[in-house]
């Protein structure tokens, strides 16, 4: 009823004021999307916090592995071609970091699948929540957890005598690269969550992530590998991230290494998150 008197008024404002209205609408829309993303991020951080027990293996296991390898590989680091390091510990930091954040990196997908399975997602969908915040909000929790884990792992390594040649700035890049990797894996998890709506399906990707870390330069330099394993490791994006990160630790600051360390996971993130958005749009327009 109320729209009848306002219609002529809106029409008389003409095309100029109409376009301002559109712009204002877009700005408000963007602001609302931001607010919604923040609110949903907060929710996923809260749920991560309340399942803190889930985080522990992702910290303990990589540290344990690093300790064992460091103890075992005191002679390995003397091999010709092995980077110059005081201890294997310095060499293994990027591996531990990546491994630590990869635990629970599929969380953004599993949690989304859980929301879809139990219907909470429909509750969100029936609200004026936009589509992108639905996905980004779930990634937010994983990002916060990954940041915390990254800082913790680096702090522990520093405590045990590791020196980061690139300094504090390099440490920040390390954490950022790890977080971007989490977004990349999380986006992939979300694609699976949307396609299958099943937590199990998303969880099934974890061994894949886990294996791909072992089949990279994480624990051994590729130049000392041979045969098909070396080919796999060199083609493995995890190697492309680990290598520049390691040079930042062992050799010092270099803009090209910083660029590579961040660009590789960033590109993968953009691709996987875009895939998730497309998958969601497809699913919603066909259901």
């Amino acid at each position: 009823m109320t729209c009848l008197p306002t219609q002529p008024a809106a029409a008389s404002r003409g095309p100029k004021s109409e376009s301002t209205t559109v712009n204002a609408g877009a700005a408000t829309g963007l602001r609302l999307a931001g607010v919604q993303t923040l609110a949903l991020t907060r929710r996923s951080v809260v749920s991560e916090w309340r399942q803190l027990g889930n985080v522990i293996p992702g910290i303990v296991f990589p540290l344990l592995l690093a300790a064992v390898y460091t103890h075992q590989f005191t002679r390995v680091i003397l091999l010709p071609g092995f980077p110059v390091v005081d201890s294997f510990l310095d060499f293994v930091l990027p591996a531990s970091l990546v491994q630590s954040v990869s635990f629970g990196a599929t969380e953004a997908g599993t949690e989304l699948a859980r929301d879809i399975e139990n219907g909470f997602f429909d509750r969100l969908r029936a609200s004026p929540c936009m589509r992108l915040p639905l996905l980004l909000g779930r990634l937010g929790g994983a990002v916060v957890v990954a940041t915390a884990k990254g800082v913790l792992i680096i702090a522990i390594f520093l405590l045990f005598g590791t020196k980061i040649a690139g300094g504090l700035a390099a440490a920040v890049v390390l954490v950022a690269a790890a977080v971007l990797l989490v977004i990349a894996i999380g986006g992939l998890g979300q694609v699976l969550a949307i396609l299958t709506g099943s937590q199990e399906a998303v969880n099934a990707t974890f061994p894949l992530v886990f294996t791909s870390i072992f089949m990279s330069s994480a624990f051994f330099p590729t130049n000392l590998m041979s045969g098909w394993f070396r080919e796999v490791a060199e083609a493995n994006p995890v190697t492309w991230i680990i290598d520049p990160v390691r040079r930042l630790i062992l050799e010092g600051w270099s803009w090209s290494d910083v660029g590579q360390a961040l660009a590789v996971p960033l590109v993968i993130s953009v691709v996987t998150v875009a895939m998730a958005v497309i998958a969601l749009n497809r699913k919603l327009s066909s259901s």
Partner: peptide, 30 residues
């Protein structure tokens, strides 16, 4: 979606959140 309220039959509620938190989330989404 802006003008309707919906209580679905089998839409479960995030068990990790409190009532207050869920109310606030729902309000912000609106």
């Amino acid at each position: 979606r802006r003008i309707i309220g919906v209580a679905l039959q089998d839409a479960s509620i995030d068990p990790l959140m409190t009532g207050t938190e869920l109310m606030r989330l729902q309000a912000v989404l609106h």
